[in-house]
């Protein structure tokens, strides 16, 4: 056992990488849930993003194109969910689950010929000056571009929800769709776009796993990240910056348990690998015991405009 071998600088640096996929998916889902829709298909959209991003990145040898197509693929897949839930008024829980099952199936099918190939990955970006700061420079400012993009998206979502008209309308739709409808806002259209945004973010998150974190394709490689992202939205009380905290905390636990595994701690590997899920449950319990503050009032309720 060699606990001293765990380097805190590297730990924080790798925590940011490990948290980015969940952060991207969670911030997308925050927008979806703020509009009053619960999309349980995050896992499915992530894995489709992962496989599509991987395939295009391998074929074009350009990870940036991989990320763009992954976002498009995630958004396209989410339109299935949006159409079913919004126009055909299907049950949101069941449809989200169905989307996850379909996503897992599609990804396994598409990814089969690509197993065992390494993908081109993103170069880490040494931000000038900042990355030269001792310790903090390596820890915070020499990651790949997507780490910063994910933080930027969180900031943009926060600003949009809080300070813009679009954000206000979106929140109104999520809080009371009947009142929003009466005011003349297009409830269905707004929700449709929110769901697509969520899909695109999930796709990006998935691609980050297959292009940066692993960088390889294996079947079912998201391994529950989508579900963790859903839990983080609740943990964050639907507040954008808190999803960042939640995702980084979770990333920290994941990296720490991997480090402990590598350090050969006497705890069996299986118990360490279940720890992120147990801690997520514990956190969910603490948050919900306080009364799920901030949940949009119309979350999960179907909307039917009765003239």
């Amino acid at each position: 056992m060699d606990l001293l071998g765990i380097n805190p600088v590297l730990l924080i640096a790798s925590l940011m990488v490990s948290a980015t996929p969940i952060l991207l998916a969670a911030i997308g889902e925050t927008v979806v849930e703020k509009s009053g829709v619960l999309n349980l298909g995050v896992e499915g959209m992530m894995i489709v993003g992962a496989v599509v991003g991987f395939i295009t990145a391998v074929n074009t040898e350009n990870p940036a194109i991989g990320f763009v197509t992954a976002a498009i693929a995630g958004a396209l897949l989410s339109t299935i969910f949006a159409t079913l839930v919004l126009y055909l008024k299907s049950n949101q829980v069941a449809t989200g689950l169905g989307l996850t099952l379909v996503g897992l199936g599609i990804s396994a099918l598409l990814g089969k010929p690509y197993e065992g190939i390494k993908s081109p990955t993103l170069q880490s970006l040494d931000i000038p000056i900042l990355s030269d700061i001792p310790i903090f420079g390596r820890m915070l400012f020499s990651h790949d571009a997507m780490v910063y993009v994910s933080i930027l998206i969180v900031g943009l979502v926060w600003y949009t929800l809080k300070y813009t008209r679009v954000g206000l309308v979106l929140r109104a739709v999520g809080e009371n769709h009947d009142a929003a409808h009466a005011l003349g806002y297009k409830v269905i259209r707004i929700r449709f776009l929110a769901i697509m945004f969520g899909g695109a973010c999930s796709g990006l998150g998935g691609a980050y796993i297959s292009l940066v974190r692993v960088p390889q394709w294996t079947e079912g490689m998201t391994a529950g990240a989508g579900w963790i992202a859903l839990a983080i939205v609740v943990f964050a009380s639907w507040k954008p910056w808190r999803t960042l905290i939640g995702a980084y905390l979770f990333g920290g636990i994941t990296v720490l348990q991997l480090n402990l595994q590598a350090a050969g701690v006497a705890i069996p590997v299986e118990y360490l690998s279940m720890s992120p899920f147990l801690i997520t449950i514990a956190v969910l319990v603490i948050i919900s015991a306080r009364g799920n503050q901030g949940a949009p009032a119309s979350l999960g309720r179907p909307f039917h405009a009765s003239n």
């Binding site: 169905g98 099952l101 897992l104 199936g105």
Partner: peptide, 12 residues
């Protein structure tokens, strides 16, 4: 995997 997809499509 195509059978898995087939079952998922059935649900949707």
């Amino acid at each position: 995997a195509s059978i898995q997809l087939f079952q998922g499509m059935l649900l949707l």
